[in-house]
Design a protein around this nucleic acid. Sequence first.
DNA 1: CATGAATGAGAGTTCATTCAT
DNA 2: AATGAATGAACTCTCATTCAT
Lengths: 209, 209, 209, 209
Amino acid sequence: MAKQKRDAEATKAKILASAITLFSKNGFDATTGDDIAKESGFNKALIYYYFKNKAGLYGSVMSTLFDSIYKEVIDSKKCCDSATAELRAFIETYAGYAQKQPYFPALLLRELSDSGTHLPEMMFESMRRLFVLLSDILRKGEEEGVFKKSIPMVLHFMIVGTLNLLVTTQQLRAKAAKEDTQIDTCSDCPMDEIAEYIFTTIKTALEVK
Amino acid sequence: MAKQKRDAEATKAKILASAITLFSKNGFDATTGDDIAKESGFNKALIYYYFKNKAGLYGSVMSTLFDSIYKEVIDSKKCCDSATAELRAFIETYAGYAQKQPYFPALLLRELSDSGTHLPEMMFESMRRLFVLLSDILRKGEEEGVFKKSIPMVLHFMIVGTLNLLVTTQQLRAKAAKEDTQIDTCSDCPMDEIAEYIFTTIKTALEVK
Amino acid sequence: MAKQKRDAEATKAKILASAITLFSKNGFDATTGDDIAKESGFNKALIYYYFKNKAGLYGSVMSTLFDSIYKEVIDSKKCCDSATAELRAFIETYAGYAQKQPYFPALLLRELSDSGTHLPEMMFESMRRLFVLLSDILRKGEEEGVFKKSIPMVLHFMIVGTLNLLVTTQQLRAKAAKEDTQIDTCSDCPMDEIAEYIFTTIKTALEVK
Amino acid sequence: MAKQKRDAEATKAKILASAITLFSKNGFDATTGDDIAKESGFNKALIYYYFKNKAGLYGSVMSTLFDSIYKEVIDSKKCCDSATAELRAFIETYAGYAQKQPYFPALLLRELSDSGTHLPEMMFESMRRLFVLLSDILRKGEEEGVFKKSIPMVLHFMIVGTLNLLVTTQQLRAKAAKEDTQIDTCSDCPMDEIAEYIFTTIKTALEVK
DNA sequence: CATGAATGAGAGTTCATTCAT
DNA sequence: AATGAATGAACTCTCATTCAT
């Protein structure tokens, strides 16, 4: 019955993938069970068979995404030794992920705006781990004597929040630029340049003169 | 000044105020007409009498809030002469407003996450005006020779985005701190200190050595 | 205070006129108090001040129209002596009225289809009087020895019903003719020719050989 | 043939049947989804599951009825050879149908009064086909030399319109007769006699002397 | 494992009608 | 006489969820 089992896994994965797409694009409220069923090609009742309910499915979506980004960030860290290099890797990796999964930032921001209404404990944990990673980098930098004392939480949002907002507002900014050519909304800036700019800004502010 | 039983202005204001509260707390989708009616103490149909439909009411809510913050920020700017002072005023004023109207950040972030789905043109305009204000300050600083060349859009999000996120995640951060006393989520940081820290960070990064 | 009184009359008349227009065009259900208020230029509450409620206004509308047509038909009858001439006058007058007030037929047919749901007793009476007129003509013809014995009710519908339907379906028939040029829906037939044709048909069928 | 608890076809048919009854009795506007749900014994949401929306259900109702009458009329025609016999069959069949499905006339008249507001194209087509049938009979009669030249559209309404009105006004006419015993509203006339009378009237008018 | 059928609760919106001035 | 403000009830439609097969 190995085949049977594998099919079940595949089905579940298909539903999850469809849910990621739709929740990301339209948010929790604006995504219906019918939408997910249609997108996945399976029956609506099957969602409940595999995921208890809509909130449960949403939780799985978020966990999946957070696990994935956490893994990328922690992997990237391995390759560096100095705190400064690790900081750059952190920012670049997050920026890269946000670009690869451009809907993730919207999901995250929405979730934060809702104070984690739909957010299961486990996902909350994932967010925290990411912050701990940055905190460690900053502390290491202080110990190395290259970073000033900082407020990690604020810097975390200055990095992660800014990246998320830039990705999420991509369309809005393009629209604004088109309507008013006087202002520069950075709508054509490549993501790696933005990441580099954020890194430089933070690094400069942190540097011990 | 006899208290009138039927005062259109007062009624409309009451409905608007209730809507601000509820949309902020729960977002557009999760706020129902019944909720607003109950909160305001008036009949649900009256909402449609004064505000065409739910989206219209939402639009009024957003315009009201945006007009209010824009006015505060532009007022604060008058009192300064140097670009650096203006930058500080900008950040402090925004921070002060976000603290006074703690529901505004959530609303704004949600709206940005939805790429402005519910957002009427006029509100879109308000957002842009705020960004222009910061851009002007940065340009002025460059002309004065005190600021380096920068990417205004990124700095805008580093300021405004970060402040919004800090306000919105206040509860979440408090909760996280309680569960894990090892990490410092800055959950007790006073708003003015945070504003000052952000100002210093940005200023340091901008400074011409 | 004669002026005052006259204004009141004028106001009431204006509302009634607006109601006739709208009820005729859209029927009872699809006409709202707001529509009538807007059309008349007066306040919605005033409708209730003058006409108790929507049904009451509708009743007034119907009575007005029925009185008007009854008066025309009875006037036309005076000028003739033979039953045949009276029959022609009846048909021609009704046809003329239906053309002058092209919305009346729709109203009447709808009312009949609803088995007189909204129809007040008085209007019901008006309909009956019209039928009595035709019955009298037919009886007179029999007494004169020029008409065969007939079923007046059926003939009444063959005349009045047909005229009403032709007027009401004017647009529909024009549309059908445009889509299929093979069939002749009589969409360009002038009303008086139709009246004449109906008269001839009925007369021929009634004639004693 | 075990009775199934969940039989989609049966359910759909039940809803349709209830809709026919209620739309006929009360018209489109005055029939609510709750009414139909209650009458059918199913949940209101199921209506939307099977029929997209209220207008869609209405369309199905009309199509069903029109298809049914068209089938009967065309069947009846097969059995005759002369134009006169076909004309009689047409009238008798339509009369029989109107009696069997006494709600159909009201529905049809209302629809015509509304100029086909709720009427889907397909139903419009059904109406046209019926008229074409009569036109063919009349043309055939002309070619056979037994019928005079006529205006088919007017005759169509003289037949079909009259029959519909007689059926629809059945109750109204009974009521009128009770209140005024002087007038004869033909309220007890059997349908086949009425059909025969209409046939004779039309035939006499058409006959070439 | 998978599905179509069925449901209950509620959302947004409209409207006839009344109240207070 | 006339009006803007306010209401309650209803209506169409949607959706998360469960049932039966």
